[in-house]
Design a protein around this nucleic acid. Structure first.
Lengths: 200, 200
DNA sequence: TGCAAAAGTTGACGTTGTCAACATAGCACA
DNA sequence: TGTGCTATGTTGACAACGTCAACTTTTGCA
């Protein structure tokens, strides 16, 4: 007749771990994520997580991978909805991308910024990130067909565009901007500069 | 009559710590840097470093700061030497920047990519990074005077340019490029796109 | 019904960052 | 020349961490 607050088995610990890790990263930064702390917060033992992830790095990589997937979904939503004007879509993608980074700085930093080798060791992460790139390549190509962008290798142009937006995101969340510079204006300037530069 | 391999006092441990940390970062990545390991390599006790840096973070920040200073110096050297053609200088800056990042990936990642707050807590790091930006702002302004770049707020344009180059550097050292894409070509494409986009 | 596999717990180990207490060296000043 | 202050380096200790091995509890299926 003992009342169990919590059953021995959690139900879906794997998902809970991902959620909690994501929350901790958002609230206290990636450094605060500890296998033991995460266990405490989920009222689970310190090594329970090892039944679902081989080690801490794998858990963090999973959070990063999920981040790429979410960001990709956000960008795809635009693709469908806002086929409005010629350049509006690219501009909107830039804004969405930036907003994601600013709203999830620590997670964004986790998505990039980690040891280069990691990509090779975690194919899921690699492919989630690549999904983003392919999306962009497709859009560049459609602009090229429409004659809005010069006929250069689409993948290279995609890298250039991605670089610009990613770089801006990094500088912003790194606090590299002096005053609280108007982010929206800067985003517009960046996308506009890109579009202009890719025309000729 | 005991022969002392090493005097009790090191002489310039602070500089040696910086050097050794930089070396370890280059050779084995930032994660390999350990107060204890660094002590071992310098044949010094594990907590000797605490006489020169309040903690490990401060030591790493010092390495990052030195990185900004070095990169800044590299860019300034161009400023003086290659006042050759109109756009050649900007192009060359981009190439130099990229080369630095590719040759010092772990250190470059350390320079950016860390907790946003850090900048606020380490004014030296902040100002070293700002030095880089100011350099770029000056160059943009000189191009504006020469009529090669549109008359928009120079600081904003500098952010855009910096973003693009920094973003490219990040993607490259993160292994985000698929095949061993021709980095030089991509660098040229990036700088050219920027210059074109900033004209009108 | 029984039993193997999945999921969770506990104990233990080595490593880490860091502090306090101590040891030594160098330097300024009598 | 000696004397003591301060900078510098060492050692012992501690708590937190990641992770493994051995154990326990459930669950699901033959």
């Amino acid at each position: 007749m003992t009342i169990r607050k919590r059953p021995y088995h959690h139900g879906d610990l794997r998902a809970a771990l991902l959620d909690e890790a994501t929350r901790m990263i958002a609230e206290e930064g990636t450094e605060s994520v500890t296998m033991r702390a995460i266990g405490r917060r989920l009222d689970v033992s310190r090594s329970a997580a090892y039944r679902h992830f081989p080690n801490k790095e794998a858990l963090l990589v999973a959070v990063a991978t999920q981040g790429f997937t979410r960001l990709h979904a956000l960008l795809q939503a635009i693709d469908v909805a806002g086929a409005d004007s010629d350049v509006a879509q690219l501009r909107q993608m830039g804004e969405t991308y930036l907003r994601f980074a600013v709203e999830n700085p620590a997670r964004y930093r986790l998505m990039y910024g980690n040891e280069a080798l990691k990509r090779e060791r975690y194919p899921q992460l690699q492919s989630a990130a690549n999904g983003l790139l392919e999306e962009l390549v497709q859009i560049i190509m459609s602009y090229q067909r429409a004659g809005a962008i010069k006929n250069h290798d689409a993948r290279s142009l995609a890298y250039v565009a991605w670089s610009a937006v990613h770089g801006l995101a990094s500088l912003v969340i790194d606090g590299q901007m002096q005053a609280p510079h108007d982010l929206d204006a800067l985003t517009r300037l960046t996308t506009q500069t890109l579009i202009e530069g890719m025309k000729s």
